[in-house]
Each structure stands twice: as structure tokens, then as C-alpha cells.
Design a protein around this nucleic acid. Structure first.
Lengths: 270, 270
DNA sequence: TATGTTAGTGTGATAGTGCCACTATATTAG
DNA sequence: CTAATATAGTGGCACTATCACACTAACATA
């Protein structure tokens, strides 16, 4: 039952601070400056820390997620959520790291981005104790341009159902993806999150269809329109979309930062 | 504008894997075993990783949070949320680490524990790039026994309002606490979370009072009772609480793991 | 037995939703 | 030009969980 090579015992160092004696805590005579000068993070055992993302988009009336085929060990050749280490010199924050990953993979600069959870334990990565901070992003498929990564990894949009069922994702990424998907679906019940899967201008029918795809069940037209319009989160662009029939008003999100929460869940058919 | 001593430039190492050449990704000839044998986490720059907790309880009809006076640098002498490094050899997972912290500080073994968020950036800790995974816990005040920590830190229960306003918490802990508090308050609108702040057996009036404290506004009795009872998350213990007046039925939570979500928010007075 | 106090209920109003038939306005076929 | 088709958008009632508040119930104590 020790399937993986972990860090050898002798590499597990203590977490006590080397060279500093703490006699009576509150009268520690060492100044903070002196303390920090002596402090070296490499004296400690720290977990691996990564950022992973579930990047969702809508293509051909299906919810799809971006997967990456791992070019390197571990889990070489397996599909995985895009992600990787934080670049301490470059990323100012976790969100920075997530934005960077997203830009690298999709060319999208300002998506909807939400932190979902952080998973950390000794077993999830064969390299040792590892922590991953997981985000999900929503982007409009019209805004993305897949570009062959400089690391020339294989990248693909995969329907979420398939990714969960048939892709044998690396590490615990199936669980991570399932959690992201569950979070997305649950938020559809009481927010207007799906607007972020649409282009800047869209019709109410477009939006309703997105809800129906995400909820995987029909949504009643009138109730839906009332709910969305009364919330005051959209504004008319002034334009109309013409087609084979009566033209439809185009809307845009009035404040992309604002995340409206409805006081009730969508109930669905009774 | 460089107020703190950070890691000297020469300590910032590259994130490339030493001694392994990746020529064509998918035909990497090194086996996973060989890869892992060569892998040493100390070759990389990794952030500091900690777990911090907002441990809430109810004392004298106020919501209070556990604070710890820091015995060591950095931020020595300041009040902070309890937390600390993950013990890689001991904690199997982040939740383990959180449970350990909680047990150390309060003696409570099985509280309600929820991950709130993870904050990571280069500035929040003077020791360098750091990540903290933040949890909140709810415990019943009757179940806790504060024990002087072995590190003999000063520990105190502080009303949340005071902690946020007058305590000048260490690092970014004021923000962390504020976010935990906001999360708790928002979940009170659509869950029965406050049951975890009560002892095993309680009356509906007890529970209503907790809601009123957390929401900071009155709650209508009949509507509240129907809401809670119809949800089917409580069961009668069979016992009654007697007092100066009509005895009240005692209830317990029927399934502590189950987190019921109501289809509507508590609306409060109109 | 009366009174105070808290537990618990009966019942109508309110508001956001579901439901469904209806009208409105465009394109396209004849 | 007219009718058919198709989708956009509305009117209006039903439903349900809530709010509101007055009421009854049960116990302790004087």
C-alpha cells in the first residue's frame, strides 16, 4: 500500500525556526527585522501549490470544458484541467495566476472567474503533499481563440459529460471538475451567471436557452423573462436581432461585476 | 515602497525541472518512476501555505470568534485568527490540518467545518509569497473547553463586531474574518446552519433566537417554525424543557452531515 | 384560582413563481 | 398583396412559501 515514491524520510524537516530560541513568547527579544532576515522558506516543508481551472464555454448548445493533454510526468499523456504552479516572481496573487493560465490557453483576458475550492492532501499527487486552488471560468465561445500553447500541449474542448465519464482525467481532476460543474449548476438556480457564457449582446431567448442547457430541463418563458428583467441586471442595447420571424430586442449586462442573487430558486416544472 | 524584507533575488529559483530534458513532450523517454525519483520539491519556489480558521460560537447572546495573540514574529503581539502551517508528516489533508488546529485550541473534535476561500499573494505576509486556506467552524459554547495552548499563546473569545473594528488583526486577518462572517450571515438566509451553534438538544425558540442574533433582526415565529419543521431536518428528542412557563419540545438535528437548502431566502420584516 | 410567561396554532395577506393562452411583428411562399 | 409560418413578447390566474398577527395551550407561582 505504498504505491508511489514519496519524499525520503530524511528530507522531512522540522517546522521549528532554525537558530531562533523562543524563551518567553511575548518578550521575544529578536526584532521583526532580524527575524525576517534570518527567515528562509526553504528551511521548511511546504506542500506543492498549484492553480487548476475548469474553463467552461458553450459550443453547439452543449457545455464544454477545456482539457489539456499532459506533456510531462506525472500523469504524462493523460487529459487534465489546465493549471500549474504559481510563478512567484510574476504572479502577484492567486487570481493573477489563474488569469495568466486562462490567457495562455484561451486568449481571453477578462472572463467570469470564481474560486471554487482548495484541495490539499498527501496522496493526490505522486510528487508529494500538494495543494491546488481550483477556479472555474465562464467565457463566450465567440471570444476565444485556441492557440497552440508554447509548451505545445494538446488542448481540446470536451463536453462536460464526456470529460467526466470517459476521459480518465489525471490526478483527482475528475472530482475537481465534478465539483466545479455542480457549483455552476447550483448557482444557475439563484443567479444570472449564465450571461457570462454569451457574447456581449444577446436576446432573452438566447439566455433562456443557456439556462435550459445548464439545468438540463425546460424553463418557462414568461416567468423567466419576468425574473431576469425585474432583477434589473440587463439593459437594452437599442439594437434588434432580425431573423426568419419577429425581431428580438438585444440586451447586455449592465454591470459585469455585480453578481445578482435572486431571493428564490428557479423552481422548474411542477 | 519596499517596506518588508523579502527573499533576496538570488534565492528565486527557476521552476524548470533540473536534469531532465523534455524534447518532444509525448515521447518523453523518462519513466514516471525515474521522474519521481529525481523530483525534489525543494528545487522549486513554492509559497508558504497555511490554514487559518474563524471559529465561531455563541456566548451570552452574541456571536464570538476565537482569537490568538501571536507569540512569535511576524506580527508578534498582534491578535490573529488561529492557524498555522500544515504538518506534512501528520496531516493527511487540509481538513485534517483544520481539525487539528480546532482541537488544539478548543478541544472540540467534530464541529461544523466549511472551507470559505483561499487567499494567496506576495504581500500578505512579510516572509514572502503566502497562501492561506481559510475555514470557518461553528461550535456550541457548551461543548468547548478553552485550554491554555502548549505554545502558551494567549487565546480569547471576542465578539465578532469588536474583532473586526477594534482589534487591528495581524496580516489580512480582518479581511478574512469579515469574509467568513459574511459567508455565515448569507448562509443563514437559506440554510439551517445555526443549528451547529446550539447544543445537541434545543427548542425551536432557542434556534429562532440564534437566527435573530446572526441576522441582527427579528424573525417571525410562525413562519420560522413552519420553515424549519417542514424541511424535515429536525427530530423530536422526546424530552421537554421546563421553565417558568409552558414546557417546550426539544429537538435534535436528524442528520448532521445533511446541509439543507431552502428554496427561498428568509425575507425578514417587510 | 388568578395571573404571568412562554409554547405553539389558525388564518388571511403578500410576492415571486409556474402555467398557458393570447397578441405582435417579422420573413417567406403563393 | 395575402396567407402561412415562426418566433417575440404579454395578460392574467393559480400556486406556494413566506409574512403578519391574533389567538389558544400549558405550565409555574402567588
Amino acid at each position: 500500500m505504498t504505491p508511489r515514491i514519496l519524499l525520503p524520510e530524511h528530507l522531512i524537516r522540522t517546522s521549528l525556526i532554525r537558530g531562533i530560541t523562543v524563551d518567553t513568547p511575548m518578550t521575544n527579544p529578536v526584532s521583526e527585522q532580524a527575524f525576517l532576515a534570518q527567515y528562509n522558506i526553504h528551511d521548511f516543508d511546504v506542500p506543492l501549490t498549484t492553480v487548476d481551472m475548469a474553463i467552461f464555454t458553450l459550443r453547439e448548445k452543449r457545455l464544454e470544458v477545456l482539457l489539456v493533454k499532459r506533456a510531462q510526468h506525472p500523469a504524462q499523456g493523460k487529459w487534465a484541467l489546465p493549471g500549474g504552479f504559481i510563478q512567484l516572481g510574476q504572479d502577484h496573487s492567486l487570481e493573477d495566476a489563474a488569469h495568466r493560465k486562462l490567457l495562455e490557453k484561451t486568449g481571453v483576458a477578462s472572463p467570469y472567474l470564481e474560486q471554487v475550492m482548495t484541495v490539499g492532501n498527501a496522496k493526490r499527487d505522486p510528487r508529494g503533499w500538494s495543494v491546488t486552488v481550483v477556479y472555474f471560468a465562464l467565457i463566450a465561445s465567440d471570444s476565444l481563440r485556441i492557440q497552440p500553447d508554447e509548451s505545445s500541449e494538446q488542448v481540446a474542448w470536451v463536453p462536460v459529460k464526456e470529460a467526466l465519464e470517459n476521459y480518465g482525467l489525471a490526478f483527482d481532476h475528475q472530482t475537481l471538475l465534478a465539483t466545479c460543474h455542480a457549483r455552476l449548476k447550483s448557482k444557475v438556480l439563484y443567479t444570472a451567471l449564465p450571461v457570462h457564457l454569451l457574447p456581449d449582446a444577446f436576446t432573452l431567448t438566447d439566455l433562456q436557452q443557456v439556462f435550459e442547457i445548464l439545468l438540463d430541463q425546460p424553463v418557462e418563458k414568461k416567468a423567466f423573462r419576468r425574473r431576469i428583467l425585474d432583477a434589473g441586471i440587463l439593459e437594452e442595447t437599442g439594437g434588434m436581432r432580425t431573423g426568419q420571424s419577429r425581431p428580438a430586442k438585444l440586451y447586455r449586462v449592465s454591470d459585469k461585476q455585480q453578481a445578482h442573487c435572486f431571493p428564490r430558486n428557479i423552481e422548474g416544472p411542477r
